[in-house]
Amino acid sequence: MTVSSMARGGKAIYGAPLGILMLEARFPRIPGDMGNAATWPFPVLYRVVRGASPERVVMQGARGLLQDFVAAATDLVDLGAEAITTNCGFLSIFQREIAAAVGVPVATSSLMQVPWVQATLPPGRRVGIVTVSAGSLTPAHLEAAGVPLDAPIAGTENGREFFRVLIKGEKQDMDVDLAREDVVGAGRELVARHPEIGAIVLECTNMPPYAAALQAAVGLPVYDIYSLVTWFHAGLRPRAFIQSSCSSPPLGGEVG
């Protein structure tokens, strides 16, 4: 078999097929946070959407920001992204518009996992949601992600650290132990109110660092943006178990 030496072009950046739209914020992004590049076992492309503060997106419904997110997503695709995701679950409200604008697969929110997780549960069990702000998670956000409008939800608004730092921006530093307590406490309260819960989905993309602690505390499966994005990326670059003569040559400026 003759091996081609032709390298394929057409992109500005190669080797990072997933683009992440970032909110504009200055709080710490610890390992596990979506905005920490070391979180991912593969390269990613980032684009910060200027003016899209967490408070504006979460508390104000991202009003007036759609075109900014579309422009940033389009820029990522132009650079070389083959799929787009975002670092705020509340951006589910832009799912349809961003996907229509960029023409590549788009997964705006961790909440999109809720219907999938529900399908795995035994009869009588439901998926619960832990969010950074239960009061801000509207039926429009849920409907856009395919989440039942009566889904059990708990938020971190009444915690001591997580909400104050991430949404209110009261300080740039964060006490990680207190933030963990806020997320785990919200999950415990959710399960206590709804004993029928069989699994939890974390809406907030800053919560994966605390997913293991929550799972240990409640003894239920916990899904988050990390589980969504690693699944999403697996479709972009499936693991090659078998090499064959009919395999397509590699993309991304590599020589086949």
Score class of each variant (00 low, 15 high):
M1V: 12
T2M: 06
S4M: 01
S5G: 06
K11Y: 07
I13W: 03
I13T: 03
Y14D: 11
Y14V: 14
G15T: 06
P17N: 12
L18K: 09
I20P: 00
M22N: 10
M22R: 12
L23S: 02
L23P: 02
E24F: 12
E24I: 14
E24A: 15
A25F: 14
P28H: 10
M34Y: 14
A38E: 15
F42G: 10
V44H: 09
R50W: 09
A52I: 13
R56T: 03
V57N: 03
A62L: 06
G64N: 09
L66C: 04
Q67D: 12
V70G: 08
A71E: 11
A71N: 12
A72E: 04
T74E: 11
V77M: 13
D78M: 08
L79P: 00
G80E: 10
A81T: 11
E82C: 08
G89Y: 02
F90Q: 02
I98W: 02
A99R: 15
A99T: 02
V102H: 01
G103E: 12
V104H: 08
V104L: 13
V106E: 06
V106C: 13
M112Q: 05
Q113K: 01
A119D: 01
V127L: 03
V132S: 02
V132P: 00
V132R: 07
S136M: 06
H141A: 05
E143L: 13
E143S: 15
A145W: 05
P148R: 07
D150E: 10
A151P: 02
A151G: 13
A154W: 01
A154E: 09
N158H: 13
F163E: 00
R164D: 09
V165G: 03
V165M: 03
I167E: 07
I167W: 04
G169P: 04
Q172N: 14
V184H: 07
A186Q: 10
E189L: 15
E189W: 15
L190S: 14
L190V: 14
A192K: 15
R193F: 15
H194S: 10
E196V: 07
I197V: 15
E203R: 04
E203A: 01
N206H: 05
P209Y: 02
A211E: 06
Y223W: 09
D224W: 00
I225W: 05
L228Y: 00
T230F: 11
A234D: 07
R237H: 09
P238R: 08
I242K: 14
S244F: 06
S245T: 13
C246I: 12
S248E: 10
L251P: 08
G253W: 01
E254R: 14
